[in-house]
Structure formats: C-alpha cells, structure tokens
Write a protein that binds this DNA or RNA. Sequence first.
DNA 1: AACTCGGGGGA
DNA 2: TCCCCAGAGTT
Length: 368
Amino acid sequence: MTADTSEWFSEAVLGWFDRHGRKDLPWQRDPSPYRVWVSEIMLQQTQVAVVIPYFERFLAQFPTVADLAETSEDRLMAIWSGLGYYARARNLHRAAGLIRDLHGGVFPTAIEPLLALPGIGRSTAGAVLSLALDQPHPILDGNVKRVLARAFGVEGWPGQAPVLARLWTLAERLTPENRVGAYNQGMMDLGATLCTRRAPACARCPLSERCVARRSGRQAELPTPRPRRSPAERETLMLLLVDPTGDILLERRPKSGIWGGLWSLPEIAPGADPRDWCLAGLGVVPARVEMIGARRHSFSHFNLDIRIALVQLDTMPGQVADDAGRRWLNRADLDALGLPAPVKDILDRFQAGRAQSPVRAQPHGDVS
DNA sequence: AACTCGGGGGA
DNA sequence: TCCCCAGAGTT
C-alpha cells in the first residue's frame, strides 16, 4: 500500500465521520479512559442499543474505577446480569483491583500497563487510548475487520492467524497520526452503519470508489465467514425448590463454564429423581414434585434443553444457611442477584403465576 | 436457524 | 501457537 492510499483512506473516513459519525453516545460525553474502557468491554459482546442502558446503570453504580474496585462481586453481577460473557465482568472487577493496588487508583494511560490488565487486549487498549486521549494506536474490532477485509480484498477467516496479522498490518498503516480517536470511531461507525455484514450501503460509503469488494462484487463473500460446526445437544433438569415460606433455593455456579459465577437453580441429571436430591442435599422429603415446563436455550456451540421440576417442601430444611454456595431467597433478594437470562425468565414466569394463584405454577411452554 | 463479538486459557 | 470457549440479541 502506498502512502497516498493511506492518506486518501484516512481522509475519506474522517470526512465521513465529521458528517455522519456517531458523536453523542453516552461514553463519548466526557470520554475518560475509565468510561471508554467500560463501554468497550460491554461492546465486545453486545450491540450499541443494548449496551446503552447497561452502561448508564453501571456508571451510576460505579462512577470511578475506585468504586468498581471496592464493590462486591454480587453487586457487579446484578448490574451485568443479562449481558452475557460473565467472565468479562469478573475481569473488569479484577482489573479495577489491580489499578487500585498497582497504579494508585489512577487509570493507566500507556499501552503496556493496559495490556497487562485482564480482559484488555491490543484492540481494547488501542480503543481506550485513542478514543479517550487521542493517542495514535490502531484498533481491530469486528467492524474494522469487516471494513478492511472488504476495502482491501483480504481473503480468509479473520480468526486465522495469518489473516489477522494482515489486517493488523493494514490497520497500523492506515491509522493517521492526527485525529486518531475520530478516525477509529469513524471506522467502527462505518462498519456498524454502512459496511454491515448483509446488504452494505455501498452507495453512501466514502470508500466505495476504491473498495476491492465493491469493485469485484464480492461484498457478500468478504470477510470470509467462520467455518461452521454442528452444535451439540445437552439436557438438564432444573429444580425450582420452594420452602414453606415461599423462598426459592439458588446455587452459585462454578466460575468457569457457562453462566460462570452466577446464581442459578440447582441442576440434576435429566433422568435423576428430585426426591433423591432433596433427601441427600437437604435432608427432607418434598411434599410435592411436579414437572412444570421445559424450554430450549441455544448457544453458538450447543443447544440446551431445560426441563423444570417444581419441588414444594412442607417442612423447613436445615443447615443450608451455613453453605455460602447455596441460598434460600425471596423475590426481592432474587432481583439483587445476577441470574442467567433463561433462569430469570423461568423465575419471573413462576412468580407471576404464583401471584395469581398461590398454589399452582404457570406452565412454561414445551420443547419445540 | 444462523450469525456475531475480543480475549483467556488449555492443549 | 493453535484451537476452543462463551450468551444474548438480531436478522
């Protein structure tokens, strides 16, 4: 690539950004490194429209990195619940503690200390420093990958190391020395609003004149999609245990794996008997066990069939309070915890049904 | 039903 | 270094 191409490219992006880019997102008002960092971590996994209310709640709860460092994991997870990728919330928390302990509570403004923090890689570090402080670092998020792969005709799935390296080289050479924040934001906005995965709006794109994909009609083929794998099937049986006061038993999930660290309903093998679990785990025999529904939850790499057993106790179970990984909770307590989206939905529906008729549960629909 | 997302961590 | 993993929303 010639220097002329590089200059033409960044001028085209900056000119378009000045006229059409997004400049009023919540984290663009007072774009401190802390605020941009939180927004970038949220945006790694979720689209802008979904992130905005989460971002506002997060910043209201934790206005500074010091507030985040001091909070409990449960309070953090309650805010993060529903966003997914919960390990990243824990990385955010760990990083805040490291900033407190290693950097005197001051958010690092150089790339090396940023890269040393958990959850921050090259692209996120570059985004924080360029968007917040206009430092000259390239970024390479999903939007930028798509724009570059099309504009320069980069073949191959960007998950492959050689393809990724080629894209990083392009990003380095194209990123201007001045107005880096505006350029990087412009690249992300181009990818998010014009150079979309399907049906890109090439007619309005400032790069279309020289875009390799556009000139060869290969917008639909670039970037090369990830090779597909057929998803596995899994089954689980969730226990909705209700004690005589109406409290519901939750268990904390292991930190690794799906819904890591979140509170969830106890799960047993699909063929196991909930009565056996109650006797072994709680020392009581339930008054009543009833299958009240099922649902299917899809992940990108497996499908999970969830069946739900309502287990009602007529005697108070003992000694559960001693176990930090298990809690009996009322409705207000449940709202303060981080719950996986399908579990929250199951409990919401159950509570709604119970509000109408205290004894019967609301059916949840069937596995399709 | 298929697709998406940056970084962590195990092999 | 390579490969797998994660979760909810969108289309």
